[in-house]
Structures are given as C-alpha cells and as structure tokens.
Design a protein around this nucleic acid. Structure first.
Length: 770
DNA sequence: GACAGTCCTGTTTTT
DNA sequence: CAGGACTGTC
C-alpha cells in the first residue's frame, strides 16, 4: 500500500479530481453537498454505492474531516466489506478510526464498550436465531405451554417484532388470553436472557437504543464523536434503527441517507419504508437529491420495470431514464410445466455461453429457494458449472455450531446454549435424565448449567456413573481452556476439534454427508486462522475483548458467505432477495405465476402485494442487456401438480416490450393421459384472467401468450411429455427432456440416468412410461 | 444410544 | 415429495 507522502496539497488536488471523476450532475451534487440532512433517492443502477463511497472520501480528503468522526452503516457484512475496500481505494489508505459496519455490528461494538452502563455482564454472548429458537422452546416448556398451540416459531417471530418496535413485555397490552400468554412468554424469555447474559440480534439494537436514551454521558460521547453519519439502503431500516440514527444526529443533523423506496423488500422483517417520508419531517430542511440516470439496463428493460412499479400507490416517484439504446425486447416463455421451464432456461444459457459469453454473466432468479432444484438438476445433467446463493451458510451448519459451542465454553463457562448443545456430544454417557437434573438445579438456584453441574458433582448429588461422566466433561473443558490459553486462534479451534472428540465422532461414519462435515470443520479452522481482530486495545476507550470472543461474536453476526469456488466461472442461481444490489448481463426471472410470485401469502395480506411488486421490480432491474421471464402452466409442489395462472405482474408490462417465445421443441406436444387442466381451478379460484394470454387473450396484439395446444391428434409421441419418466430396454430409466417432429418422424430427447442424454425416434424406441 | 418409523409442514432472509 | 423433528424400539 502506498503511504500518503508529505506535501499534502498537491496530492489532495489529485485525489480530489479522482473523487469527482465520472460523476453526473446529481451524483456530484450529492457527493459534495454541504453538511446537513441529505436524502439521496437512488434508483436502481444509478450509482448509489459510488456516491456513498465518494462522499466519504470527499469528507476526509476535501473537507478534512477526521475519519474517526465518520460513521457509515450498511445492512450486510458483504456491503460493508465492499464499501471499506472502495473507500480505501479512493484514499489510497485505510481510513483509520472510521466506524463502518452493519447496524448489528456497530451496536455490538458499542455494547462491548459500555456493557456496564447497558446492564450486561462483561462476557455477554450473542445468540443467533437458532439459539433463540431453542431458548424459546425451553421457555415454553418451563411455562408448561402446549407447543402445538403456542408454536415456538410463531412466538419467536412475535417477540422479535415487538423488539424491533422497541416494545418490552411491560409495554404490551395484557388483554385476552392470547395477548396475556405472549406477554408471559416474552417476559420469561427476557428473564432467561438476562440471567444467562444472552443477547439476541434484535436485542443488540434495542439495548443500544435504550442505552442512548437513558444515559446522557454515553449519548453525548458518541453524538460528539460521530459528526457525519451515512446510511446505505435506508429504505430497509426498522423503527429502532431509525430512532438510533436520529439520536446520533440530533445535534448536528449531518445524516446522509441513501435509499430507494421502490426497492424496499424487507417489510416482512420490520423494515419501514415510511422512514424515508418521516426523515423529511423529522429533519426540517432536508435536501433531497434524486439519482435518476440508470447506467445498467437497456431502455426496454427500464421502461418495462417502470411500468410494473407504477402500479404501486404511495411512491415517492422517480423518473429513471437511460441514454442506452432500446435493446432487445423482454422474452417471455410460457412453459408447459416446471420441468419444461428449467429446460428452456438451461438451453438458453447453453446457447448464450456457446456464443462466447461467460457463464457468470447470467443469473437465474426465483421467488423461493426451493425452485432452484429443477434448474440444478438440469445444469448438473449437462455438466454446466453453477453456484447457488443462499441456503445454509457456514456458521449455521450443525457441526460448525457444535464446534463453536466448545469454543464458547472455553471463552465463557456460563454459556448455557453451548453447554446444552455439547454436554453429550459426542456421546459420553450424560443422558437426558442427568441433564434434566442439572437443568433443574440451575433453574432452582438461578445459576448457569455449568455452575449447577459443578455443584452437583462436588456434592455427590448424582448416581456415581452420571457424576463421573459429568465430571469428566467439566474437566475436559477446563483442560481445553488451559491448553489453549496461549495459542493462536486457529490452533485453539484445531485443539478443540480434536480434544472434544468431535472430529473422531464425525469421521466414524463414512458417508458423503460426513465427509462434507469434516470439510466444513476444516474450513472453520481455516477461518479461525485467517481471522483478523477488528478492534483492539487503544482503538477506543475501554478494553477490547480477546480474540476468541471476537471470533465468536463474528461467527454469530456474520454467518459466513456461502463458500464455494468463487473463482470458477459459474451460472448464478439465487432468490430475488439475494439478488438485490447485483447486476447481470442476462437475467432469467422464473416462476412468474400468481400464487408463487406474487406469493400466495402476500395475496391474503393487504399491502404486501406492493412489496411483491417491488421485488419484481428489483428482479427486472438486475438485467443489463437481456431479460427473460418464464412461467409454467403447471407446477409440481408439495408432492402435487397444480395448474397455475400467469403472474399479474406480467400483465402490467406493456405488451410492446414483450416478445413471446414459442416452445421450439414442444409446440406439437399432445398431452395424453390425465390431460392438463389449463383453465380454471388452481390457486385462488379462477377469476377474470384467461390463461390464453396474459393480456386478456391477446387483445393488445402481438404479445399473447399461447399455451401449448391441449388437444392434438395422434402425433407419434404416444403421450410422452417433457418431464415424464420412461424406461428403455437398453438405456434404462430416464427423463424426457424434449420432443420434436411428428408422426413417424417424432423424436424424443431423453436424459438417461446411466446412459446420458440421447435423441431417439419414438417409433422404434419402444419407451415405456413410468 | 443408535436407528427406524411416523408425523408434519411446507416464503422471502440478514443480523 | 422431502426434509426435519420427534417417538418408540431394541
């Protein structure tokens, strides 16, 4: 890295021009706006991250603001890392002292510094949603509530939403039985957390907010320190996060908020788009700057997306525009079923790649993660490398959490969740009975499981065998702590893995799954080895936690990105939520069906349809040059095949932007056997919409969506359809991929489990349908 | 304590 | 259908 040389004036001049390079008028205005409340309404693809990072660089370099006076907040660790990298690039040096992170990460840091003022034990521990779920389940059991009636998941969700709105149990109405019970559960859960020194995600935020509210000294310290506060994805802030920002900026009002009301897609977890409107009320004289030039998509894509989002009421309103050319129309494919949809998508990707494009320039997007399976299956079949985003992350995997539990006990013996998790893993003769005794004692004396167990062993309260087993466990942890006291983090993890017996436990079974687990555990050791302590002594007032504690907190707060060979050129598969902030030359928006997208549950809840529409908008605006949208006439879900209807969002796209793609292989398919009920029935009762075309039977002309004909004379296929399982005398079992020709020329493409993909002439193939 | 069988439930997801 | 949670048996 280049150190900043003396003679700053000249350098600053250079850098300044660097900071202003390639900015349009609105971006420039935002970057160099005078201090005060600023609301940047940044449409999709309008260079929002660029503005944010340049603003920080401008403050530091041109305005001579001390980095330590800057606080920048993002929503994900990934976004934080990216922003840090880009700011460093602009400044040619890391901005020492600047705080940049997620709301949760920053609150965690504040609570570590002010644990006493926040009424927390010094060794307080962050629990993730899985730990929280287990804890709530335990609370329900202790309260002797029926888990059928009071579903732990539901309770967890309710408690979290109350916390997200800054409501403590005592703030809840104590009305009917249901309200009363929830209050009791919430209260008991809080008691548990307090006693055990546990802090869940929502608590990190709420506790910090309360700390600011109740403690003038702490509040003023940070208000004075952070003279400039910047927030990314402002539309995704919840009630607490907004209050928190308001307090921090109360004196100077230097809040730089960047957001897009049209891209608010996290309302279901407490985000409040209204914060954008509230902002202008709460901060009088807010300067609003709109970034409306889109640098990402073709004009057609942009106009189509704009037409969809225009159906939402109560928008702030933006006019996104581009100087790019129209580009290709949006391609719409009405698939016969979900298998055919996947076939179409995969074949389209194949030919895109065959034309010399990179695989990672294309993304397949879907509403829910389960939809990825059909695509994965086909991609695997043709050996096209792909990568699925989302799903379980490293630190959420069971075996990783087991290993982490040992580390947590080393760091803090009083961690009940960790104790409960591994006291008998691997099995060491401490069964449910013994464990219940320990738990009972802990409950009675209001002490941790560790202390209860120690006391019981000391007082010979248990049968000899159980007592010995328990003592061995306690000893094991103590020994591990002793042995690792002076080791590097990676070696601590390694030691814990070996000496806990976990490694042996998982190597005993020899399946693919077990192998994967061992790999994951190895990866945990690597993570520990590479872990960089993020805040150290002297950084701020107060002592920094040791490396192990920081690593554990990090494991909870940053679940670890889906690890995969990122260097490989892969087709990208992800949910629409996961796609936010990304862009791809070629995008497939799949499963465009009412009931799936928009999701059924959003159709039942008022208001949530608009969020689905924003999700659609987010999806469409990911595409740079080509956008395909697909839907399937029938879809396999929960073990059944359902007829479906095209998504209402498709009808909201003006037909002139759409080009319908007719099935190339399947236009002559006869649908034998059970037949396909294309019309009527299905989700939510058939009202209004003819399935023949999303635009009401093609009234607009041009863009009618034809379904594959439902009734055809004998054509030589004998009832074969894509997706059907067949058996061949020689090749064995396989799946029909495609059909072409007719009569005696009818040919069928089959993917055989053993023999691979083959074209066969139906007349001779003698396929047996299964 | 391991394993097989049953029941049940199926959004989105970060922290 | 399929995966997870849970129950019951040896």
């Amino acid at each position: 890295m280049i150190q900043s040389p003396p003679g700053k004036t000249a350098v600053n001049h250079d850098r300044k021009s660097h900071i202003f390079d390639n900015l349009n008028a609105a971006q420039l205005e935002a970057v160099a706006a005078s201090p005060g409340p600023l609301l940047i309404l940044a449409g999709a693809g309008s260079g929002k991250t660029r503005v944010l990072t340049r603003r920080i660089a401008w403050l530091i370099d041109a305005q001579r603001v001390q980095p330590r006076a800057i606080l920048a907040v993002t929503f994900t660790n990934k976004a934080a890392a990216e922003m840090r990298g880009r700011v460093e690039g602009l400044l040619n040096a890391p901005p020492g002292g600047m705080w940049l992170g997620t709301f949760h990460g920053l609150c965690h840091r504040l609570l570590r510094l002010h644990y006493a003022e926040a009424n927390l034990p010094q060794a307080f521990e962050i629990i993730d949603s899985d730990d929280q779920f287990r804890l709530i389940r335990r609370v329900l059991r202790e309260l002797e509530l029926d888990e059928q009636r009071w579903a732990p998941r539901e309770m967890q969700w309710l408690i979290n939403s109350h916390k997200e709105n800054a409501r403590r149990p005592q703030d809840l109405p104590d009305g009917d039985h249901i309200a009363h019970t929830l209050r009791r559960v919430y209260h008991a859960y809080e008691t548990f957390c307090r006693r055990l020194g546990l802090v869940d995600f929502a608590e990190l935020l709420l506790r910090t907010l309360e700390l600011f509210r109740n403690n003038q000294t702490v509040r003023e310290t940070w208000q004075q320190r952070f003279q400039h506060v910047l927030v990314d994805e402002f539309q995704d802030t919840n009630a607490i996060q907004y209050q928190w920002l308001r307090i921090l900026c109360d004196a100077h009002k230097n809040l730089f908020a960047v957001g897009d009301d049209d891209q608010s897609i996290y309302g279901w977890r407490g985000a409040r788009v209204e914060n954008i409107l509230r902002f202008q009320k709460n901060f009088p004289d807010t300067r609003v700057i709109r970034l409306e030039q889109n640098y990402r998509s073709t004009a057609v894509i942009l106009k189509a997306a704009d037409a969809v989002i225009a159906h939402n009421a109560g928008r702030l309103g933006k006019k996104l525009w581009t100087d790019r050319s129209s580009g290709a129309p949006i391609r719409l494919y009405a698939a016969y079923n979900d298998f055919d949809e996947a076939r179409f998508v995969v074949e389209s990707i194949e030919s895109w790649v065959a034309r010399g494009n990179r695989r990672d320039s294309t993304a397949v997007l879907y509403r829910s993660n389960g939809q990825s399976r059909a695509f994965e299956k086909l991609l695997r079949a043709i050996k096209m490398p792909y990568r699925v985003y989302g799903g379980q992350r490293l630190f959420e995997r069971a075996e990783i959490k087991d290993a982490l539990a040992y580390l947590r006990l080393i760091a803090n013996r009083d961690s009940d969740p960790a104790f409960a998790r591994v006291v008998n893993l691997p099995a060491r003769g401490i069964g449910p009975r013994t464990f219940e005794h320990v738990r009972e004692r802990a409950r009675q004396q209001q002490i941790s499981l560790w202390r209860a167990a120690t006391a019981m062993v000391d007082e010979y309260e248990l049968p000899a065998r159980a007592s010995n087993a328990l003592q061995r466990f306690l000893q094991l942890i103590d020994e591990m702590a002793d042995a690792t006291a002076d080791l590097e983090l990676g070696e601590v993890a390694d030691h814990a893995l070996t000496h806990s017996g976990l490694l042996e436990h998982f190597s005993r079974e020899s399946s693919e799954i077990a192998e994967g687990r061992l790999e994951n555990l190895q990866e945990l050791v690597d993570e520990a080895r590479n872990f960089k302590v993020s805040f150290a002594d002297g950084d701020d007032e107060g002592a920094a936690p040791d490396a192990l504690s920081q690593f554990l907190a990090n494991a909870a707060l940053d679940a670890g990105d889906t690890q995969a060979e990122e260097w490989e050129d892969c087709v990208q598969l992800m949910s629409l939520h996961a796609a936010k902030g990304l862009e791809f030359p070629l995008v497939f928006l799949t499963g465009m069906e009412d009931g799936l997208f928009p999701h059924q549950r959003s159709l039942d809840q008022p208001g949530s349809l608009e969020e689905e529409r924003r999700l659609c908008y987010v999806g469409m605006t990911r595409a740079m040059s080509a956008l395909y949208m697909t839907w399937a006439g029938e879809r396999h879900m929960h073990g059944q095949t359902h007829p479906t209807r095209p998504s209402r969002f498709l009808r909201e796209i003006p037909p002139q932007y759409i080009e319908e793609i007719r099935g190339t292989h399947i236009s002559n398919v006869s649908i034998g056997g059970r037949g396909v009920s294309v019309r009527g029935g299905g989700f939510g009762g058939g009202r209004g919409v003819g399935v023949g075309g999303v635009h009401g039977g093609g009234a607009h002309g041009g863009a009618a969506i034809q379904r594959p004909a439902a009734h055809q004379p004998a054509d030589g296929f004998g009832g074969l359809v894509p997706g059907r399982s067949v058996r061949h005398k020689k090749f064995g079992e396989g799946l029909v991929i495609a059909l072409e020709g007719q009569g005696e020329h009818a040919r069928v493409q089959v993917n055989f489990a053993a023999a691979g993909v083959k074209w066969l002439v139906c007349q001779y193939a003698r396929l047996e349908t299964l």
